[in-house]
Design a protein around this nucleic acid. Structure first.
Lengths: 148, 148
DNA sequence: ATTCTGTTGCAACTCTGTTGCAACAACCCG
DNA sequence: CGGGTTGTTGCAACAGAGTTGCAACAGAAT
C-alpha cells in the first residue's frame, strides 16, 4: 500500500485555499488524480488520468501544477531508481519521510519507515550543521521472489 | 573532498581488463577523467574533459561508457537533488555507500558517512527481504553559512 | 598480417520538462 | 450580480538529456 490511508479527500484543495491559491477546474482534476492514486505516477500518467476528468488539460498545466504543489510542500518528487526512463514520480507528502525500496527486476516498490532513518537525519543535521529540508532515500535491490 | 584518496590510478582499466572488456583510447580518456575528477561531473562535463585528451570523442560514446561502468558497478549515478537541470552526476563507487548533502542555496555538496546508514540498510534487508544493490540517500538543506 | 567481433562517430530521434504569449476565467469588490 | 484585475490556461515552439541504427573502424587473438 503505497500511501497512508489517513487521507482526507479534498485535503489539497483546503490547504491551497488556505494559502489563497486560486482553484481551477484543471487543478481540481490534477489534485484528484494525485489524491486518489494507488501507486506512484509520473507526469505523463497524471496527464492521461486528468484528461479523463477534463479532456482539454495540457501537459504544461500538469507540470506547472506539480511545481506549485512541490513549492507548497504538498507532494514529494521521487526518482524510484529511474526504473523506466528518466521521469519523476510524485506522491502526497507523507507526515514522516519514508524510504522507497525498488526491485530492480520486477519493479515492485515497497515503502519502509524506520526510526533509524530519523536518527540518521538528526545526526546529519548535528554533525554537518545543515538544516535538512528534503531527505530522499531510494534503494534498488532484489526482492525475495526475484532472488530465487 | 568528494572522493576517497585511497584511489589507485588505472584501477578501472585493471578491473575492466579482468572482466575481458576491451580497452580503447576513448574509454581510457573517459576513465581518466572520472578517476582524476575532484568534483562530481555530469555527462556533458565528462565529454568536454575527455575531448581534451581525445578531440574526436562523441557524446554517445560517453553515455555508452557510463552505462558500461554502471553495469559493472564501478561508478554510481547521482542526482544531487537536481541542483541544476535534470542531468545525472557520476562518481567512482565508494567502498562504503556515503550520503550526499546538498545546500539548496549555494550548491555546496558535502559527503557524509555513518554507521547508522549501514545499520539502516541492514535493517531494510532483514525486514523487507530485499537484497540491496544500491542505496542512494540524497539530502537537500541549508548549510550553516546560508542559514544566517 | 588477417580476421572476427566489439566499439565508435554520426545523425536523427525520443522523451521529459520549460517558456512566451494571447485568450481566458477565478475571485474580489462594489 | 456584473465588471475589472490578476493569476491561469492551451498552444506551439523550444531546450536538454539520453538513445539508437548503421556503416566504418580498431582491438585482440590467431
Amino acid at each position: 500500500m503505497p500511501f497512508a490511508n489517513t487521507e482526507i479527500p479534498g485535503r489539497f484543495q483546503t490547504l491551497l485555499a488556505e494559502r489563497g491559491i486560486r482553484m481551477t477546474g484543471q487543478r481540481r482534476a490534477i489534485l484528484n488524480v494525485i489524491e486518489t492514486a494507488k501507486k506512484h505516477l509520473d507526469a505523463g500518467q497524471i496527464l492521461r488520468r486528468a484528461r479523463k476528468l477534463d479532456a482539454s488539460i495540457d501537459r504544461s498545466t500538469v507540470y506547472r501544477t506539480l511545481g506549485l504543489l512541490k513549492r507548497h510542500g504538498l507532494i514529494d518528487e521521487l526518482d524510484l531508481m529511474h526504473l523506466e526512463g528518466e521521469a519523476h514520480y510524485y506522491e502526497r507528502k507523507p507526515d514522516r519521510g519514508h524510504i522507497h525500496l525498488a526491485c530492480l527486476r520486477c519493479g515492485k516498490i515497497i515503502e519502509f519507515d524506520s526510526d533509524l532513518f530519523e536518527s540518521l537525519k538528526a545526526q546529519m543535521e548535528k554533525e554537518c550543521g545543515y538544516r535538512i529540508a528534503v531527505a530522499r532515500l531510494e534503494v534498488g535491490g532484489y526482492c525475495s521472489k526475484c532472488r530465487t
